[in-house]
Computed example of a mutant assay.
Amino acid sequence: MRAVPTWTWLEGHPALDLANTVKRTGMQEHDLLRSPRDLDSWLDAAALPAPRPETVDEADLAAVIALRDPALRLLRAAVGRGPWLAADVGAVNAVLLAAPEIELVGDAPGARTHQPLGEPAVLPRLLARLAAEVRDAAARPDLAFCDAPGCGQLFYRHRTNQAWCGPPCGNRARVARHGA
Protein backbone atom coordinates (compact mmCIF):
# COMPACT_ATOMS: atom_id res chain seq x y z
CA MET A 1 0.00 0.00 0.00
CA ARG A 2 1.25 3.46 -0.93
CA ALA A 3 2.07 5.80 1.96
CA VAL A 4 0.15 9.03 2.45
CA PRO A 5 2.38 12.05 1.69
CA THR A 6 3.77 14.07 4.55
CA TRP A 7 2.84 17.72 4.51
CA THR A 8 5.85 19.18 6.32
CA TRP A 9 6.16 22.00 3.74
CA LEU A 10 2.76 23.53 4.53
CA GLU A 11 3.14 27.17 5.51
CA GLY A 12 -0.39 28.20 6.43
CA HIS A 13 -1.12 30.02 3.16
CA PRO A 14 -4.14 28.11 1.78
CA ALA A 15 -3.73 29.07 -1.88
CA LEU A 16 -0.05 28.12 -1.94
CA ASP A 17 -0.59 25.00 0.13
CA LEU A 18 -3.22 23.88 -2.38
CA ALA A 19 -1.09 24.68 -5.43
CA ASN A 20 1.98 23.06 -3.89
CA THR A 21 0.26 19.66 -3.73
CA VAL A 22 2.01 19.24 -7.07
CA LYS A 23 5.67 18.56 -6.21
CA ARG A 24 8.68 18.48 -8.47
CA THR A 25 11.42 15.87 -8.38
CA GLY A 26 14.12 16.99 -10.78
CA MET A 27 12.00 18.40 -13.59
CA GLN A 28 9.23 15.80 -13.21
CA GLU A 29 6.02 16.89 -11.45
CA HIS A 30 4.13 14.55 -9.12
CA ASP A 31 0.58 14.94 -7.86
CA LEU A 32 0.38 14.40 -4.10
CA LEU A 33 -3.44 14.24 -4.16
CA ARG A 34 -3.94 10.87 -5.81
CA SER A 35 -6.63 9.37 -3.59
CA PRO A 36 -9.34 10.41 -1.15
CA ARG A 37 -6.98 9.24 1.60
CA ASP A 38 -4.34 11.74 0.42
CA LEU A 39 -6.96 14.49 0.29
CA ASP A 40 -8.21 13.62 3.77
CA SER A 41 -4.65 13.79 5.10
CA TRP A 42 -4.03 17.15 3.40
CA LEU A 43 -7.30 18.58 4.72
CA ASP A 44 -6.24 17.57 8.24
CA ALA A 45 -2.81 19.20 7.88
CA ALA A 46 -3.57 22.38 5.92
CA ALA A 47 -4.62 25.69 7.42
CA LEU A 48 -8.00 25.83 5.73
CA PRO A 49 -9.99 29.05 5.30
CA ALA A 50 -13.30 27.25 5.99
CA PRO A 51 -14.46 24.03 7.67
CA ARG A 52 -13.63 20.79 5.91
CA PRO A 53 -16.02 17.94 5.10
CA GLU A 54 -16.16 15.13 7.65
CA THR A 55 -15.30 12.55 5.00
CA VAL A 56 -14.12 12.77 1.41
CA ASP A 57 -14.60 10.55 -1.61
CA GLU A 58 -13.49 10.34 -5.25
CA ALA A 59 -15.96 13.07 -6.29
CA ASP A 60 -14.55 15.42 -3.63
CA LEU A 61 -11.02 14.65 -4.79
CA ALA A 62 -12.01 15.43 -8.38
CA ALA A 63 -13.59 18.74 -7.26
CA VAL A 64 -10.45 19.79 -5.37
CA ILE A 65 -8.20 18.89 -8.30
CA ALA A 66 -10.56 20.74 -10.67
CA LEU A 67 -9.78 23.88 -8.64
CA ARG A 68 -6.13 23.10 -7.86
CA ASP A 69 -4.95 22.62 -11.45
CA PRO A 70 -6.20 25.97 -12.85
CA ALA A 71 -5.19 27.68 -9.59
CA LEU A 72 -1.65 26.34 -9.97
CA ARG A 73 -1.44 27.54 -13.56
CA LEU A 74 -2.77 31.00 -12.63
CA LEU A 75 -0.37 31.39 -9.71
CA ARG A 76 2.53 30.32 -11.90
CA ALA A 77 1.36 32.76 -14.58
CA ALA A 78 1.28 35.53 -11.96
CA VAL A 79 5.03 35.03 -11.44
CA GLY A 80 5.83 34.78 -15.15
CA ARG A 81 5.89 30.98 -15.37
CA GLY A 82 3.25 30.50 -18.05
CA PRO A 83 0.30 32.16 -19.75
CA TRP A 84 -2.70 33.65 -17.96
CA LEU A 85 -5.45 31.56 -19.56
CA ALA A 86 -9.09 32.61 -19.77
CA ALA A 87 -10.16 28.99 -19.17
CA ASP A 88 -8.28 28.94 -15.84
CA VAL A 89 -9.80 32.28 -14.82
CA GLY A 90 -13.23 30.89 -15.71
CA ALA A 91 -12.67 27.71 -13.68
CA VAL A 92 -11.62 29.63 -10.55
CA ASN A 93 -14.45 32.15 -10.98
CA ALA A 94 -16.98 29.31 -11.40
CA VAL A 95 -15.92 27.93 -8.01
CA LEU A 96 -16.27 31.40 -6.47
CA LEU A 97 -19.75 31.78 -7.95
CA ALA A 98 -20.86 28.33 -6.76
CA ALA A 99 -20.76 29.49 -3.12
CA PRO A 100 -20.68 33.30 -3.06
CA GLU A 101 -20.07 35.14 0.16
CA ILE A 102 -19.62 38.64 1.45
CA GLU A 103 -16.94 40.02 3.76
CA LEU A 104 -18.15 41.72 6.90
CA VAL A 105 -16.40 43.81 9.52
CA GLY A 106 -14.82 41.55 12.14
CA ASP A 107 -14.64 41.94 15.90
CA ALA A 108 -11.26 43.73 15.90
CA PRO A 109 -9.71 46.52 13.85
CA GLY A 110 -8.77 45.18 10.44
CA ALA A 111 -10.49 41.84 11.04
CA ARG A 112 -13.02 40.49 8.58
CA THR A 113 -15.52 37.69 8.68
CA HIS A 114 -17.03 35.86 5.74
CA GLN A 115 -20.75 35.23 5.42
CA PRO A 116 -21.92 32.84 2.70
CA LEU A 117 -24.94 33.86 0.69
CA GLY A 118 -27.44 31.08 1.15
CA GLU A 119 -26.45 27.80 2.74
CA PRO A 120 -23.83 26.10 0.57
CA ALA A 121 -22.65 22.59 1.37
CA VAL A 122 -19.35 22.26 3.22
CA LEU A 123 -17.11 21.34 0.26
CA PRO A 124 -18.38 24.04 -2.14
CA ARG A 125 -17.90 26.65 0.60
CA LEU A 126 -14.36 25.41 1.31
CA LEU A 127 -13.53 25.41 -2.41
CA ALA A 128 -14.91 28.93 -2.81
CA ARG A 129 -12.78 30.17 0.09
CA LEU A 130 -9.72 28.46 -1.44
CA ALA A 131 -10.54 30.08 -4.80
CA ALA A 132 -10.74 33.47 -3.05
CA GLU A 133 -7.32 32.81 -1.53
CA VAL A 134 -5.98 32.00 -5.02
CA ARG A 135 -7.48 35.23 -6.39
CA ASP A 136 -5.79 37.23 -3.63
CA ALA A 137 -2.46 35.37 -3.89
CA ALA A 138 -2.21 36.01 -7.63
CA ALA A 139 -2.29 39.77 -6.94
CA ARG A 140 0.42 39.78 -4.27
CA PRO A 141 3.74 41.30 -5.35
CA ASP A 142 5.68 38.99 -2.98
CA LEU A 143 4.45 35.80 -4.71
CA ALA A 144 7.42 33.88 -6.13
CA PHE A 145 8.44 30.56 -7.68
CA CYS A 146 11.34 28.54 -6.26
CA ASP A 147 13.33 27.18 -9.17
CA ALA A 148 15.86 25.31 -7.04
CA PRO A 149 16.56 21.75 -8.24
CA GLY A 150 13.75 19.48 -7.12
CA CYS A 151 11.51 22.22 -5.69
CA GLY A 152 9.18 24.21 -7.94
CA GLN A 153 7.11 25.46 -4.99
CA LEU A 154 5.27 28.76 -4.90
CA PHE A 155 6.06 30.91 -1.87
CA TYR A 156 5.84 34.44 -0.51
CA ARG A 157 9.14 36.32 -0.38
CA HIS A 158 10.25 37.60 3.01
CA ARG A 159 12.86 39.82 1.29
CA THR A 160 12.74 41.52 -2.10
CA ASN A 161 15.83 39.65 -3.34
CA GLN A 162 14.78 36.22 -2.04
CA ALA A 163 15.24 33.70 -4.85
CA TRP A 164 14.38 30.40 -3.10
CA CYS A 165 11.64 29.28 -0.74
CA GLY A 166 14.09 28.42 2.02
CA PRO A 167 17.72 27.72 2.97
CA PRO A 168 17.72 24.04 1.83
CA CYS A 169 16.66 25.10 -1.68
CA GLY A 170 19.24 27.88 -1.73
CA ASN A 171 21.93 25.35 -0.78
CA ARG A 172 20.82 22.92 -3.51
CA ALA A 173 20.78 25.69 -6.12
CA ARG A 174 24.26 26.90 -5.14
CA VAL A 175 25.65 23.35 -5.17
CA ALA A 176 24.11 22.71 -8.59
CA ARG A 177 25.49 25.99 -9.91
CA HIS A 178 28.95 25.18 -8.53
CA GLY A 179 28.81 21.67 -10.04
CA ALA A 180 27.94 23.10 -13.44
Rank of each mutant, 00 (worst) to 15 (best):
residue 154 L to S: 04
residue 159 R to S: 11
residue 32 L to K: 03
residue 142 D to H: 12
residue 176 A to Y: 00
residue 69 D to Q: 14
residue 18 L to M: 09
residue 178 H to Y: 13
residue 91 A to M: 07
residue 135 R to L: 13
residue 63 A to W: 01
residue 105 V to L: 15
residue 38 D to R: 08
residue 98 A to H: 08
residue 41 S to E: 08
residue 98 A to M: 05
residue 101 E to S: 15
residue 9 W to C: 00
residue 13 H to E: 15
residue 156 Y to T: 09
residue 75 L to E: 06
residue 121 A to R: 05
residue 106 G to P: 05
residue 12 G to N: 03
residue 91 A to Y: 06
residue 34 R to D: 13
residue 25 T to K: 07
residue 74 L to K: 07
residue 117 L to C: 08
residue 15 A to K: 08
residue 137 A to T: 14
residue 6 T to A: 13
residue 129 R to E: 10
residue 90 G to C: 02
residue 137 A to R: 07
residue 149 P to C: 01
residue 13 H to M: 04
residue 168 P to N: 05
residue 115 Q to K: 12
residue 119 E to P: 01
residue 16 L to P: 09
residue 25 T to G: 07
residue 35 S to V: 08
residue 36 P to A: 08
residue 10 L to V: 09
residue 141 P to Q: 12
residue 127 L to I: 10
residue 12 G to I: 01
residue 148 A to Y: 04
residue 111 A to S: 06
residue 131 A to D: 07
residue 158 H to G: 11
residue 47 A to N: 09
residue 82 G to N: 02
residue 54 E to K: 09
residue 58 E to V: 14
residue 165 C to Q: 06
residue 118 G to V: 04
residue 162 Q to G: 08
residue 161 N to C: 00
residue 173 A to I: 04
residue 103 E to L: 11
residue 111 A to G: 03
residue 118 G to Y: 06
residue 171 N to I: 10
residue 6 T to R: 15
residue 47 A to T: 14
residue 132 A to W: 07
residue 152 G to T: 03
residue 119 E to Y: 01
residue 106 G to S: 07
residue 143 L to A: 09
residue 144 A to D: 12
residue 59 A to Q: 06
residue 58 E to C: 05
residue 24 R to M: 05
residue 22 V to G: 07
residue 96 L to N: 11
residue 31 D to F: 00
residue 165 C to L: 08
residue 1 M to C: 10
residue 113 T to Q: 13
residue 145 F to G: 05
residue 78 A to N: 06
residue 11 E to D: 14
residue 46 A to L: 12
residue 57 D to L: 05
residue 15 A to F: 02
residue 171 N to W: 00
residue 49 P to Q: 02
residue 122 V to H: 06
residue 74 L to Y: 13
residue 123 L to Q: 07
residue 23 K to M: 07
residue 73 R to G: 13
residue 52 R to N: 06
residue 141 P to A: 15
residue 51 P to A: 04
residue 138 A to K: 04
